[in-house]
Write a protein that binds this DNA or RNA. Sequence first.
DNA 1: CCCTGATTCGC
DNA 2: GCGAATCAGG
Length: 180
Amino acid sequence: MTTASWTEDRVGALKKLWLEGQSASQIAKTLGGGVTRNAVIGKVHRLGLSGRAAPSQPARTTFRAAARPRPAAPAAPVQAPSAPRRIEAAAPRPVMAVQPSAPAPMPELPGTATVMTLGAHMCKWPIGDPSSREFSFCGRRATENVYCGEHARVAYQPQVRRGASKDGATELARSLRRYI
DNA sequence: CCCTGATTCGC
DNA sequence: GCGAATCAGG
């Protein structure tokens, strides 16, 4: 394996397994070829697949801020003091609508992208059951992280207004009702 | 300690 | 683009 690069089919397998909910290490083991889970995770991020359609893990309430301040910056002649390279949204909250007894079945129409055709800049809003063959993705131009503008608004709910509203839960429920 | 994904950055 | 090193957490 001089070059265990990411060939088409390897990437395809990666996408499939990842979106099925397999863990990075499990996928790495499956793919073989000496790829590590780090490699898998790295690729997943490069593909823009970060954040899963079907999160098997519970809390995503952990948002990392600093990840690698360890090796200390050695030589830094003219280093920008601290360029705020990222402006974070107040509190992105991925909201996956998965209700056992949802009254409305399937309000979503499109879903043109499949696991194989899904590209890095396509909206990854899941439509249907990930394990089903009918499963698809929105597939529109992803402008906000992994989602298109429409779905980004649903996925990243701004923090519920505090104070003003007498019942924030009601407000949130109403905002969600249109989509569930 | 096992595992998970996330992030950074040298290559 | 790639992935090891590292981090933060379950």
